[in-house]
Each structure stands twice: as structure tokens, then as C-alpha cells.
């Protein structure tokens, strides 16, 4: 008997027993390792390199060929970077709080609607989310411009309530941190509403009714019963808004102030304009280590604790 059929049979047996599963796991695994993990290893290694005027513009050498902390030292001594981090965190935090203040009552309103209304309202929330992100930012550029109907409306409203000395011919909205926060809220609001809705929809209204029967006022019921139960939804929504908002590039570069750049802009500029790959990498690593990773770990342990608490409650019953 020739060797080929045996190999084929063996291959087929492997495929039928374990091979199918191994291929299912290995294909996406290898893909993500090669195209997601390896690039990040490169970024990490690059943050310890030195910038050179060659192509590609970096080298490993100098006094500390392996661990060159120079880029990180600059990160903490050059105020440009610290200010950019602070601006990013302030804008993203402001946008997250605004999203929560607007999104929470909206999610609650949708969750407390009748079933047919609920689907329509949810669709209305998702619809802008499916249209282009860029075009949503662009829509606000049209509204905030000095000659737009929206700006004129706001200006006449403002001039109506302030003394004549303070009157403005238009309200300067474009290229400010206010514009960044406003457009971020507009773009990320669905990310706050959807997880909150998923959480609020599952709540047992019998608890509310029991509290009402026992004489609680609606606001008190909300504060004591609805709000504590919706904390996982608030955390999930907050993360979905805060993390991408802090690294945002499109919104600040279209409507933001150029004198107060956000961190995404700094990374992009260091990389593309200054061609300083090592510095861009160090800024990126710092963003990940200082902001993204702690928040991820927090969410992970928070949801784990929630699950355990739930399990204990179920066992207790």
C-alpha cells in the first residue's frame, strides 16, 4: 500500500476527531496574534527607541540600547503632553457626565414605555448610530458656524437676556473645548443609552410598586430602588463613552481648539508630522497604561463582584 492514502486517512481522522476544533480556534487566534498583538509589541518596543533622521526613523542604540527611558522622561517634563492628557481627561469626563444626565432619563423613559413604542424609540436611538460618524460631526460644524441659523438663534436668545454691553454678534462655539464636549455627547449618546436600557428593562417593577404601596414618593423610589440596581448599566455605558472619547481624534481635529490639543491629536501629530515614532509610541503606551488598562481591570472586577453577589443572593433564597 502506498503512503499517500494512509496520510490522507490519518489527516481525515485527525480532522474528524480534534482537527475541526483546533482549526476553529487557531485561525482567528493566529490572525489576532499577528495583526493585533505583534503591532502592540512593536509600539511597546518602539517607545524605548531613539528617533533618527533615517528611514524608518528610529534606532536602538545610544547609552541605553535596550531600555532608553528618554521618551518617558520627556512625557513627564514637557508640559505639552501633561496638558494634552489633562485636556483629554477633562473633555471625556465632562462628555461622559453629560451623556449620563441626558441618557439615563431617556433610557428609563424607553424602558417604561409600552412594548410597541419601545421598539420604535430604540430604532430612533440606533438610527443616527448607523449613519456615518464623520457626517454626524460634520452636521454640528454646520450648526455651530458663525453664520448658521442655530448660532443666530442662540445669539439672539443670549442678547435678549444679558445687558446690552455684553451683546455679541455671534457666539464663538467652533474650535473650543465646549464644541468638543457637545459633539462627543452627540456622537456617543447611543453608547450610553443602549447598555442603560438593557439594564433598566430587566428591573422588576414589583419592587417599585411595593415601595409605592408602602408610601414612598416616586423620586424616593427612584433613588432607593431603581438607581442602585442600574449601577452596572451606568458603569458599562460610562466606559463605552469615556474610553473612546479620551482617545478621540476626529472630533477634536474638526471642531476642537488647536491651542489645547487632545492626546489623540498629539499621537497623530508626533507620528505623521514630526515623524517621531518613538515619542508617539511612548505617548500611546502611557495612554494605555494610565487610562485604558486601569479602567478595563476595574470593569472586569466590578462585573465579577456583581456576579458573585448575585450568586450569593440566589443561594441565600
Amino acid at each position: 500500500m502506498s503512503a499517500a492514502p494512509t496520510t490522507l486517512r490519518r489527516l481525515r481522522r485527525w480532522f474528524n476527531r480534534k482537527g475541526w476544533g483546533q482549526i476553529t480556534i487557531a485561525t482567528p487566534y493566529i490572525w489576532l496574534l499577528a495583526l493585533f498583538l505583534v503591532p502592540f509589541v512593536i509600539v511597546f518596543a518602539m517607545s524605548f527607541a531613539t528617533r533618527t533622521p533615517t528611514a524608518p526613523p528610529f534606532s536602538f542604540g545610544g547609552e541605553n540600547p535596550i531600555l532608553n527611558w528618554e521618551n518617558y522622561r520627556r512625557l513627564f517634563t514637557d508640559t505639552l503632553y501633561i496638558r494634552a492628557y489633562l485636556t483629554s481627561i477633562a473633555n471625556a469626563a465632562m462628555a461622559t457626565v453629560m451623556c449620563l444626565l441626558i441618557g439615563y432619563p431617556m433610557a428609563l423613559g424607553i424602558a417604561r414605555s409600552s412594548r410597541s413604542w419601545r421598539n420604535i424609540l430604540l430604532m430612533l436611538v440606533i438610527l443616527p448610530f448607523w449613519t456615518s460618524f464623520l457626517l454626524r460631526v460634520y452636521a454640528w460644524m454646520g450648526l455651530m458656524g458663525t453664520n448658521s441659523w442655530f448660532n443666530k438663534l442662540l445669539t439672539s436668545f443670549y442678547n435678549g437676556i444679558v445687558p446690552d454691553d455684553w451683546a455679541l454678534s455671534y457666539i464663538p462655539m467652533m474650535n473650543t473645548n465646549f464644541a468638543v464636549v457637545l459633539v462627543t455627547v452627540y456622537s456617543y449618546l447611543p453608547f450610553m443609552i443602549l447598555p442603560l436600557y438593557a439594564n433598566l428593562e430587566k428591573l422588576d417593577l414589583q419592587l417599585d410598586e411595593a415601595a409605592m404601596d408602602l408610601g414612598s414618593r416616586p423620586l424616593r423610589v427612584f433613588w432607593d430602588i431603581t438607581l442602585p440596581q442600574s449601577i452596572p448599566g451606568i458603569i458599562a455605558g460610562g466606559m463605552l463613552v469615556f474610553i473612546p472619547a479620551s482617545g478621540e481624534l476626529i472630533i477634536p481635529s474638526l471642531v476642537g481648539s488647536s491651542s489645547q490639543p487632545m492626546i489623540g491629536r498629539v499621537i497623530s501629530d508626533e507620528f505623521a508630522s514630526a515623524r517621531d515614532w518613538p515619542m508617539a509610541s511612548a505617548v500611546s503606551v502611557a495612554l494605555l497604561v494610565l487610562l485604558v488598562v486601569p479602567l478595563m481591570l476595574y470593569t472586569h472586577y466590578e462585573s465579577k463582584a456583581q456576579r458573585q453577589a448575585q450568586k450569593r443572593a440566589e443561594e441565600g433564597q
Partner: peptide, 30 residues
């Protein structure tokens, strides 16, 4: 390697796009 795999699957969801962008570009150039 299941833990690493599930990490690799969640990380791109929260990664700031600028970082994914420069990381991919450096990979392609190298």
C-alpha cells in the same frame, strides 16, 4: 491560551483608534 485569546478579542473593542492605526502602520512598514 484561552485567557490570552479572550483578551485579544476584547482589546480591539476598547483600544483608541489612533493607537491601533499607528501600530498597524508600523507593522506594515517594518
Amino acid at each position: 491560551g484561552r485567557t490570552l485569546f479572550s483578551g485579544l478579542v476584547t482589546a480591539p473593542l476598547v483600544m483608541p483608534e489612533v493607537i491601533t492605526g499607528i501600530a498597524s502602520l508600523m507593522l506594515f512598514i517594518l
